[in-house]
Amino acid sequence: MPVRQLGESERRAVERLLDLDPFAGAQVAERVAARGLAWWRAEGRILGYGARRNLEAICWLGGNLTPVLASGPAVAAFADLLAGEERICSSIVGRADAVLGLWERLDGAWGPARAVRANQPLLVTDGLPPVPPDPQVRRVGSGEVDRLFPAAVAMYTEEVGVSPLADDGGRSYRRRVNELVRAGRAYARFVNDRVIFKAELAVVTRRTAQVQGVWVAPEWRGRGIAAAAMAAVVRDALLRVAPTVSLYVNDFNVPARRVYERCGFRPVGTLATVLF
């Protein structure tokens, strides 16, 4: 079946698909809810696979490339189209089978990748954590961005492998941090005006709040603060923001996986990320 760019007239069909995979497709769902499918508003395109009355899969193409509910034939069809275009995304992220299938077909045209993280457990919880929350973890205030920003840069550089200051001196990344703080979606624990723990609700939909940017200052690691800190974030998110909290984690990050398990997260699938 041909792949086509979707418009606002097919928004309901797209939303129905996103409801079938509310955690892996959360980032796309947030964008669709906020800006619809018109490409000039959405800062990206949504490609569809399937008959007009039977949409089977979608693929978001913007800063990231994210397939949702993409079967083998859909992956092949998306890749056939994308291989003829210049790469504009900085990563491919989504369900592991679809992401790795896309990358197998696109690496010749888009490669090389800077990193391929093939096994990232996708975790979800809908219950208050059994771990007592850290009362010192709180939402970051609008006047505290300057205190939060160095920790955000350190987390990004450690996690992604490049500095967010590289392209434009960090202006776009700082805008993003500001947005999260203003929306009440950034959390931190401060000690002597310095951030020792941070996390954000980077994606929020009516189905889930997705945590990203979890970071503990290096000198505080191994002291057992992460579980109680995460419990505070999860508790606030469940009570104030969304009916579930989700996140994904690198399979090799064993300490983090143990923290999330202690906080009540359960696996619901596997994601993968290709970084450029």
Rank of each mutant, 00 (worst) to 15 (best):
V3G: 09
V3N: 08
V3R: 04
V3H: 06
R4T: 13
Q5I: 14
L6A: 06
E8T: 07
E8H: 05
S9G: 13
S9E: 15
E10R: 13
E10M: 08
R11W: 01
R12S: 15
R12C: 13
A13S: 13
V14T: 05
E15K: 07
L17Q: 04
L18M: 06
L18V: 02
L18F: 03
D19C: 13
L20C: 15
L20Y: 08
L20D: 14
L20K: 15
D21T: 07
D21H: 10
D21K: 08
D21E: 12
D21P: 00
F23D: 12
F23P: 04
F23S: 11
A24E: 11
A24N: 12
A24Y: 08
G25P: 00
G25A: 05
A26Q: 00
Q27K: 13
V28L: 09
A29E: 01
E30C: 05
R31N: 09
R31L: 11
R31Q: 12
A33W: 00
A33E: 02
A33V: 04
A33Y: 01
A34V: 02
A34S: 11
R35H: 12
R35E: 11
R35Y: 04
R35Q: 11
G36D: 00
W39N: 12
W39R: 15
W40I: 10
W40Q: 14
A42I: 03
A42P: 03
E43T: 10
E43G: 14
G44R: 00
G44E: 00
R45C: 13
I46F: 06
I46S: 02
I46N: 01
I46K: 02
L47D: 09
G48H: 10
Y49P: 00
Y49W: 09
G50W: 06
G50A: 12
G50M: 08
G50N: 10
G50P: 06
G50H: 08
A51W: 06
R52I: 13
R52C: 14
R52E: 15
R52L: 15
R52H: 15
R53I: 10
N54E: 15
N54C: 12
L55G: 14
L55W: 07
L55H: 11
E56R: 15
E56C: 14
E56D: 13
E56H: 13
E56S: 15
A57E: 00
A57D: 02
A57R: 03
I58G: 11
C59G: 07
C59E: 06
W60S: 04
L61Y: 07
L61K: 09
L61A: 10
L61E: 08
G62Y: 00
N64H: 14
N64G: 15
N64K: 14
L65G: 09
L65M: 06
L65V: 12
T66Y: 01
P67C: 08
P67A: 08
P67E: 06
P67I: 00
V68E: 04
V68S: 02
L69C: 09
L69D: 04
A70R: 04
A70D: 01
A70P: 03
A70Y: 05
A70I: 06
S71Q: 12
S71E: 07
S71C: 09
